[in-house]
Write a protein that binds this DNA or RNA. Structure first.
Lengths: 337, 337
DNA sequence: CTGTTAGCGCCTTCAC
DNA sequence: GTGAAGGCGCTAACAG
């Protein structure tokens, strides 16, 4: 058998002609409910057989046009390069396939232009719903979906233009910080020397994590100081130098370290390696990565509860939920302690 | 503006009726080449305006049906959970978008059933070509594409059913092993105590890596022994115990360690951490991960050249290349040394 | 039990 | 300059 690039595909008309039946009979048979339409079994078998011989395959696009539904479901996210987004994509695909639809996941590299373009392509393809994760401007995309009457949901992103499913950053940060404080005190150190590292002040997630961090400190009777928080962004180089600066200023490591993302963590590890400084302090991280989990010191890692988030997201596709536009909070999971 | 889930979309007929023109005029204008058809500028502007007001959006599926091309391009891969596949997916999307198509990437978790089902869905959606990466049985999928007259290419996977683009495992392994031997000898140790760890004997990639490893040894005047190779699979637990077994049997670490995948590496790190054994030997890894790259010892990492691979893959979609079905080898990149 | 037919929304050739 | 009409492949009434 050789490649037959561009050869014309066989249609139900071809099959109908071959068995000398009508297209509707063929269609009925091919869609399985021939018994309901009391088509002779012999006819049905002949059709099935020749369809196979002719290599017939449905054209889902034609069917979709006829039925006014595409059978497609879309998701846009920034990239696949960390476990959270990778898990989101895979969980989305699974859920979509379970609903007998075909997933279209597209990454947009956090580029607003690309986000807009991709979203409009997906809507023009008539996806039946759209998941929006980690984009720069959810509101614009929500509006587009609204105009196209396509249900959508924001994931890991709060917004008022659609239902939103987000990790409970505050509660998670509170929990991890409490663990850290316990550990710090168990080793006889002071919770007055803790540090929050990473993120960008003003960002939704970062602000909530800081709030949780500070609340835990207050609950433990510690009076938060401004030098306990260092929002150095997401790049490893930045956290590396921010951490170095902290250590040099204080002449020692913090007693407990709350790291706000896996890339920030990378920077800390890089510092530790390059200066041969053992990280003998309590460490917690609001993110999870299998490699980081195997490092030479115990880290309390918070893993976003992707399964729950996606289940909730799928459930918010109903008309009522679409109208309600709630923000649904999902507590993350403490992975190590 | 409120959600209007399920409301009927506006079509070119609606626009035509609104401006009291014919659908063909509307179509012409909306597709931009109205000047070529010498449509009055005034008409054209009126159409554009009302189309916008009515919120008209093309239905790409209807257009596709009419033009017999879907505007869709498919890729199937096992998952997104390592950098290689994540990069593959993103590079694919970029290339596809550059060609003004819409990417559909679907992960199949290395499950043959799922692979088959997904492939047939994508073909039924009439993707214009299909990239196949890291699946269990490429031949079956190649055959399906062939029957559907859809060009396809195997990525990181050799096959005879379609052109294949694979990393040059042998050359890469040879290169890294040479580096390791240099390092081992530079520190006064013997290249007779090197170890290849990971992979599955009989697998294409593993076998080629072993071949490169052994060849480098031979070139360096070392006579390979069977206990220099331990194919312990891909799970971290397995490499962890396989490495432990090696160390216990020999009473010391190997002088140089060639690790065949990132998950194998994880297992080695886990062993090192749990036994407080410093990994003071030359280490090389046929895989790349940003976290691993920041670990407390220098590792020569080989990174698959995703960009080149994908470029070659895109180029092998032409009819001649489809018929030729070559296996194209792409050397990986040495990331650290 | 099976066939005819009218679209789904769009593009394109050919008339006018 | 613009409109009418056919058809992409499929489904679902509605007729027989």
């Amino acid at each position: 058998m050789t490649a037959r690039v561009g050869r014309k595909k066989t249609t139900i008309y071809d099959v109908a002609a071959a068995v000398d039946a009508s297209v509707s009979t063929v269609s009925l048979v091919l869609n399985g409910d021939w018994s309901r339409y009391r088509i002779k079994e012999e006819t049905s078998e002949r059709i099935l057989k020749t369809a196979r011989e002719l290599g017939y395959k449905v054209n889902l696009r034609a069917r979709g046009l006829r039925l006014s539904k595409s059978g497609l479901a879309g998701m846009i996210l920034p990239h696949y390069r960390n476990r959270f987004f990778a898990d989101l994509a895979e969980t989305f695909e699974l859920g979509v396939r379970k609903r007998n639809l075909c997933p279209i996941v597209v990454s947009t590299q956090r580029d607003v232009e690309v986000e807009l373009k991709v979203a409009s392509t997906l809507l023009a393809q008539r996806v039946e719903f759209l998941f929006i994760a980690g984009v720069a401007d959810p509101a614009a995309l929500n509006r587009m979906c609204d105009e196209a009457s396509v249900p959508c949901v924001n994931v890991d992103l709060p917004g008022t233009g659609a239902p939103s499913v987000v990790s409970d950053n505050r509660a998670g940060a509170l929990l991890v910080t409490q663990k850290l404080i316990d550990k710090v005190r168990a080793t006889g150190k002071s919770a007055n020397d803790m540090l929050f590292l990473g993120g960008v002040a003003g960002e939704y997630a970062t602000d909530n994590r800081i709030a949780g961090f500070l609340e835990a400190l207050r609950q433990a009777g510690v009076d938060p100081r401004s030098d306990m928080v260092s929002c150095c962004g997401y790049r490893p180089e930045n956290s590396s130098s921010a951490f170095r600066a902290y250590v040099e200023r204080h002449g020692k490591l913090p007693s407990g370290l709350f790291i706000s993302s896996i890339t920030t963590f990378e920077g800390v590890v890089r510092y530790s390696v390059s200066t041969a400084t053992a990280l003998d302090c309590a460490v917690g991280c609001f993110d999870w990565d299998p490699f980081a989990a195997d490092l030479p010191f115990t880290v309390a890692m918070l893993r976003q509860d992707v399964e729950s988030m996606m289940e909730i997201a799928f459930n918010s596709l109903t008309t009522e939920r679409q109208l309600a536009r709630d923000i649904l909070l999902v507590p993350p999971i403490l992975e190590r302690a």
